[in-house]
Write a protein that binds this DNA or RNA. Structure first.
Length: 660
RNA sequence: GCCCCAGUAGCUCAGUUGGAUAGAGCGCGGCUUUCCUAAAGCUGAGGUCACAGAUUCGAAUUCUGUCUGGGGUACCA
C-alpha cells in the first residue's frame, strides 16, 4: 500500500494553486512525511511554513486554507493544525483495516504493487578472487548486493546480478608457478582446491619474505628521514615556541617517526623469524625474485601460452566450485558470472580505441587517461604491456551496455575504491556511455574490537567459512542451550536444532552487516549479533516464531485458520492501531530503502515492527478479547505481522524457522 | 601536500534528505507473569549532536573555517 503517494496526490492540486513550477511542487510534496511525533500524528505535512514568504500570510493561515481545501475524508479520521503550522493527519482505522486485509489476502506480495516504470539494473557484487579463499572482506559486498537485488526485484524492477569474479589476476600466476614447482600430486588429486590454496600460500609467503628483505633499505631510509624531519621541526619550534602550527608539526613528525620505526622493527622481526626456517630459506634462495617469475607466468597466461592456459582451465572449475559452495550455504544466486577472464580479448581494442580518440596517451611508458581533478591518471595499460583492473572495468561496462542496456548500473564495492570508480565513471561518460546511471554503492570497513580492520587474534584475515561456522556454533550455544530449551517446553529434534542454529547463525552475520548504514564502518562483535535481545536477526526471527506459536496455540483452542483467515479486521485499541500503521508502511519503506540503496532502512523497520508486535501482544489479550470478532481480527493481525516479518527477512536473504 | 569519508548517551549505532521536546540496543536502577516460549513488557537516569561562525520561519542535517580519527593518492585488485 502506497500511503505516502496517495496522501501526496490529495495535497497536490491544492499546493499546485500556489506552486506552478513542477520542481517546487514536487519539493513541497516531499515535505509530507511519516510523522516523528507518533503521539500527535500518523503523517504530517510540513508545507505551510515554507510558503509564508511567498504568500505573505502566516503559516497558520496557510495551513487552515490547506486543510479546508484538501480532501482526505475517506482515508483520515482527523486532519488538524498544530505548532507553527504543521498539518497533522490521523489515518482512519476503517481505511487502514481495509488496506491491511488486502495485504493479508495477498500472501505472496502483501499487496505491494510493482512499480509503474520498471527499470533495468545491473548489480555487480561479491566479486571474490577465485584462487584465494573467501574472507571477511567479501561478506559486506555479497550480503548488501544480494539484498539490494532481491528488494529491487520484489519492487518490480529487472535486476540482473553479475558476479565479476577475479579469475584472471596475478594470483593465477602464483598458483601456476606453485603448481609447477611445489605441487603435491596426491593432495591435488584428492582435494584440488585445498592444495591450490596451499600452493598460493607457499608462493605468497616467499614473495612476502623477499619483498620484506628488499624493502628493508627503504624502510631504514624512511626512519632516517623521519628522524631528520623531527629534529628539524623540533629546532624550528624551539625557535618559535608560540607557533601552534610548528608545535603540531613536531607531534606529527614524532608520530611518523614512531610509525616508521615500528614498521621497520616488525619487518625485521618477521624476517628473522622466517630466517630460522632452514627449509624455507633454501626454497627462497632457489626461487629468487619470485615476484618477477610470477608476473611472467601471469603474462604468459594472458598472452595465450598453451601450457598455462591448460592449467588455468583445470584450476578454475575447482576454485569456482569452492566459492559456489559458500554461496549455496548463504543461499545466494547470481544471474551471471562473467569473470575478468571473459573480457580478455576486448582489452587491447579498448586501449587502442581510447588512444585513437585521443582520450588516452602514453606517459612514462604506460597508457593513461588523464582526468580533470585528479593528480594521478587512470592507467589502462602498464609499461610491460599488461592490462589492469581499470581496463577490465571499462570492458565490462561496455559489454553490459551492449548486452543488457541497463538504466542503472550498481557497483557494490568497498568505499576505499571510490576514487577508482569516480575515474572509471568519468572515462565511461567520455566514451559515450551516457545512457546508464552509474552508481558506486560503497560500504565501510568491518572493524575488530580494537577499531582496526577485522583480523584474527594472530593477525591473519578471517576466512569466511570459518566465520560462518563460528556464527552457527555461537548461535547454537545461545538458542539451543539446555536451560532455554527446557523452559520453552518444546521437544526439539536434533535435526531441528541444527536447522535453527544454522538459520540464526547465518542470519546474524547477514543482519549485522545490513543493519548498519552501509556507508559507515562498523565493529564486528559475534557475541552481540547472535543475541536474542536488541536489533538482531535472532530477535526478529524469534518474533516471527512467536506469531506462529500463537496461531498454533489458537488452533488448539478452537480458532482454526479457516475461521480468522477472512475475518474482518477491526483496529480499535492503541497497540493495534500502531502495529497496523506500521504494517501499512511496508511498501513505502521498501521504496524508501532503495532511494539510496540502504538495506538498514529495512532492518530498522523490521526491528520496530517486532517491538510493536511484542508490545501489542503484551497489552491486548487475543484469546481473551472482549468479543469473538475481536479474537478473530487479532489473530489475523498477528498472521499479517508474521508474514511481513518473514517477507522482510527474505528480502534481506535471511531465513526463518517455525519455532525456536 | 592534495582529495574523499567520518566525529551523536558509558559502549555499539540509527536519525525518513531542513521540521515539533535528538532516538534505539547493550550496560546500569526500578516495576510487571490468568493468552505464545519472561528469550517478554513497562519505566528511570544518562546529550554542549567535536568546536566556532554563517544561511532562515526552523540546523545533528546546508555552507565556511578549525580540531580529531580513518581511507585514498602512477602502473595491485
Amino acid at each position: 500500500m502506497r500511503v505516502l503517494s496517495l496522501i501526496r496526490s490529495r495535497f497536490a492540486p491544492v499546493l499546485a494553486t500556489w506552486l506552478d513550477e513542477p520542481d517546487a511542487l514536487a519539493a513541497a510534496l516531499e515535505r509530507i512525511v511519516v510523522s516523528r511525533e507518533s503521539h500527535l500524528a500518523d503523517y504530517q505535512a510540513n508545507v505551510a511554513m515554507p510558503l509564508q514568504k511567498k504568500l505573505g500570510k502566516t503559516p497558520l493561515a496557510i495551513a487552515e486554507e490547506i486543510v479546508s481545501k484538501v480532501d482526505l475524508s475517506d482515508i483520515c479520521s482527523s486532519v488538524t493544525i498544530a505548532g507553527q503550522g504543521y498539518v497533522n493527519l490521523r489515518l482512519s482505522p476503517e481505511w487502514m483495516a481495509k488496506c491491511l486485509m488486502e495485504a493479508h489476502s495477498d500472501q505472496e506480495r502483501l499487496a505491494v504493487a510493482p512499480v509503474a516504470k520498471p527499470k533495468t539494473y545491473v548489480i555487480d557484487f561479491s566479486s571474490p578472487n577465485v584462487a584465494k579463499p573467501m574472507h571477511v572482506g567479501h561478506i559486506r559486498s555479497t550480503v548488501i548486493g544480494d539484498s539490494i537485488t532481491k528488494i529491487l526485484r520484489f519492487l518490480g524492477h529487472e535486476a540482473i546480478s553479475d558476479n565479476h569474479l577475479g579469475d584472471w589476476g596475478t594470483q593465477f600466476g602464483m598458483i601456476i608457478y606453485g603448481y609447477k614447482h611445489f605441487r603435491d600430486e596426491v593432495a591435488f588429486a584428492s582435494a584440488p582446491v585445498m592444495e591450490l590454496s596451499r600452493l598460493y600460500r607457499v608462493v605468497q609467503k616467499i614473495i612476502g619474505f623477499q619483498d620484506a628483505v628488499a624493502n628493508l633499505p627503504k624502510q631504514e631510509l624512511a626512519v632516517e628521514r623521519a628522524e631528520e624531519k623531527r629534529t628539524d621541526s623540533n629546532a624550528k619550534s624551539v625557535a618559535a615556541t608560540q607557533d601552534k602550527k610548528l608545535a603540531k608539526e613536531v607531534v606529527t613528525a614524532t608520530n611518523q617517526l614512531r610509525e616508521a620505526h615500528e614498521a621497520l622493527q616488525k619487518s625485521k622481526e618477521s624476517i628473522e623469524a622466517t630466517s630460522r626456517d632452514v627449509e624455507f630459506m633454501e626454497r627462497s634462495r632457489k626461487h629468487s625474485e619470485l615476484g618477477q617469475r610470477v608476473l611472467k607466468e601471469t603474462s604468459k597466461l594472458h598472452s595465450g601460452n598453451a601450457e598455462n592456459l591448460k592449467l588455468w582451465e583445470a584450476f578454475v572449475p575447482n576454485c569456482k566450485e569452492e566459492i559456489h559452495s559458500v554461496y549455496r550455504r548463504l543461499n545466494i544466486q547470481f544471474d551471471h558470472e562473467f569473470g575478468e577472464s571473459y573480457y580478455n580479448d576486448m582489452l587491447s581494442h579498448i586501449v587502442e580505441d581510447l588512444v585513437a580518440r585521443s582520450l588516452a596517451v602514453e606517459s612514462g611508458g604506460a597508457i593513461c587517461v588523464f582526468l580533470d581533478g585528479y593528480e594521478a591518471p587512470m592507467i589502462v595499460r602498464k609499461q610491460d604491456g599488461a592490462f589492469l583492473y581499470a581496463t577490465t572495468d571499462i570492458a565490462t561496462a561496455i559489454f553490459r551496455e551492449r548486452e543488457f542496456a541497463p538504466d542503472v548500473s550498481l557497483y557494490v564495492v568497498d568505499h576505499r575504491q571510490s576514487e577508482h570508480f569516480q575515474k572509471l565513471f568519468d572515462v565511461l561518460r567520455k566514451i559515450g556511455l551516457t545512457h546508464t546511471e552509474l552508481k558506486h554503492v560503497e560500504f565501510g570497513t568491518v572493524l575488530g574490537e580494537d577499531g582496526k580492520p577485522f583480523k584474527t587474534r594472530s593477525g591473519t584475515v578471517v576466512g569466511l567459512e570459518s566465520m560462518l561456522d563460528e556464527a552457527v556454533s555461537v548461535a547454537w550455544e545461545v538458542v539451543c542451550n539446555p536451560d532455554r530449551l527446557q523452559s520453552s517446553g518444546i521437544a526439539f529434534t536434533d535435526a531441528e536444532k541444527r536447522q535453527i542454529a544454522e538459520t540464526v547463525g547465518l542470519g546474524a552475520i547477514k543482519y549485522a552487516d545490513l543493519c548498519h548504514n552501509r556507508t559507515s564502518n562498523y565493529v564486528f562483535d559475534m557475541k552481540k549479533m547472535v543475541q536474542l535481545q536488541g536489533n538482531t536477526a535472532a530477535y526478529i526471527q524469534y518474533s516471527y516464531a512467536r506469531t506462529r506459536s500463537i496461531l498454533r496455540k489458537a488452533e488448539t483452542e478452537g480458532f482454526e485458520t479457516i475461521r480468522w483467515k477472512w475475518a474482518p479486521l477491526v483496529l480499535s485499541a492503541n497497540p493495534e492501531l500502531t502495529l497496523g500503521l506500521q504494517l501499512l508502511r511496508f511498501e513505502d519503506m521498501l521504496n524508501q530503502s532503495m532511494v539510496d540503496y540502504l538495506p538498514n532502512v529495512v532492518t530498522e523497520y523490521l526491528f520496530e515492527t517486532a517491538k510493536l508486535f511484542s508490545s501489542f501482544y503484551d497489552q491486548c489479550s487475543v484469546l481473551g478479547a472482549d468479543t469473538p470478532e475481536s479474537v478473530l481480527s487479532r489473530l489475523r493481525l498477528i498472521d499479517l505481522t508474521g508474514l511481513t516479518l518473514r517477507k522482510g527477512l527474505e528480502l534481506l536473504g535471511i531465513g526463518v524457522v517455525e519455532r525456536m
